[in-house]
Structure formats: structure tokens, C-alpha cells
Amino acid sequence: MDIVTESAPFTTPCIQCRAPTTSTVTEALVGEDHRWDIDGDCSSCGATWADCGYQQPLTGFREAILTANGPTVLELGVTSSSLATVMRALRLTRSMSPAQAKAIAEELRETGLEGTRIEMEILARLLRDSGVPVNVRTGQRR
């Protein structure tokens, strides 16, 4: 099973004594399962916890991942597909209007799309399955 993860420190109140505690937030792609986890231990009272499997990130999770790891960029592959092909693939993989698909396809074609590593891996898999060659890289845009 293919597993891709990114983690980041995340300050949150202890589940027991409510003291500020630095925990770890993780965004994971386990096979086809996209999830968010948080775990921590409190230096004040010794409590430990792990909350796993959130389908949507809690407030601040995504921002913490991006701050700690920087953005990942999804770019069209060297054999670039037509704008119409990319738009069609986007609409098949995501619920969006033709105008939204066009805007995203143009951004993908011109500068690449930025997001967390997991977000870009999911979109890359879906686009590749639709015949659109893409590359995923960490770091800044070109």
C-alpha cells in the first residue's frame, strides 16, 4: 500500500489539563484514504493522545503543514496536453464548473498549482488516470 505523509508541529491545549502543548499534526494519504491526524503529549500533566482519521482538517492543520513543509507544486508534464483535455480531466475528477476548470487548467499550465504534498499527490493521481501527464515537486514555483 502506498503511503504519503507530511507532518508539522501544532500548538493545542492538552486534552486533560488544557495547558498549551506542542503536538504533531499529520496529513496522510494511505492508499486512497486522505486523512488528518493529531497526536501529542503534555509536559505539564503527562497526558498522551492520538486522534486519527479526520476527513477534513481542523482549523489550522493545513496552514501548519504548509508552514512547516512549504508548498508542493503540481505541473504539467513535458508532453503538455491541450487546455481542453486538462479541463475535461479536472471536471471528471472534481465537481467544478467549466469556468472553474478553465481557470485551474490555465494556472496548472502557466505556473503550476500549489498546495500540500498530499493535495497535489491526489490531484496528480486523478489527472494521470485521465491521461494528463503531470509532475509533483516540492519547493517554489519555477
Results as ranks from 00 to 15, higher is better:
M1R: 05
I3T: 13
V4M: 09
T5Q: 12
E6S: 14
A8V: 11
A8L: 07
P9A: 04
F10S: 02
P13S: 02
I15W: 00
Q16R: 04
Q16W: 00
R18K: 03
A19S: 06
P20E: 10
P20K: 04
P20W: 00
T21F: 00
T21G: 01
T22M: 03
T26I: 14
T26F: 00
T26V: 15
T26E: 04
E27W: 00
A28Y: 02
A28L: 06
L29R: 10
L29W: 03
V30W: 02
V30T: 08
D33F: 13
D33T: 09
H34C: 08
R35Y: 09
D37M: 06
I38P: 00
D39L: 05
D39V: 03
G40W: 02
D41Y: 00
D41I: 00
S43Q: 04
S43P: 01
C45H: 00
C45N: 00
G46E: 01
G46L: 01
A47C: 00
T48V: 03
T48P: 02
W49V: 04
A50M: 01
A50T: 05
C52T: 12
C52R: 12
G53H: 10
Y54R: 14
Q55D: 15
Q55N: 12
P57M: 03
P57E: 06
L58N: 04
L58I: 07
L58P: 02
L58S: 02
T59F: 05
G60W: 02
R62S: 11
A64Q: 09
I65K: 08
L66S: 08
A68N: 07
A68S: 10
E75H: 06
E75N: 08
L76I: 08
L76F: 02
S80V: 06
S80M: 08
S81V: 05
S82H: 08
S82T: 15
L83T: 11
L83P: 03
A84L: 12
R88Q: 14
R88A: 15
A89N: 10
R91A: 12
R91L: 07
L92C: 05
T93F: 04
R94Y: 03
M96D: 09
M96G: 11
A99Q: 15
Q100Y: 03
A101F: 13
A101T: 14
K102A: 09
K102N: 10
A103G: 10
I104K: 12
E106H: 03
L108Y: 06
T111S: 07
G112A: 08
L113I: 15
L113E: 09
L113C: 10
G115I: 08
G115R: 05
R117D: 01
I118S: 09
I118F: 11
I118L: 13
M120E: 12
M120R: 15
L123S: 11
L123A: 06
A124E: 13
L126N: 14
L126Y: 11
L126C: 08
L127Q: 11
R128Y: 06
R128M: 09
S130T: 04
S130I: 02
G131N: 05
V132K: 10
V132D: 05
V132H: 08
V136R: 12
V136D: 12
R137F: 12
G139V: 15
Q140M: 08
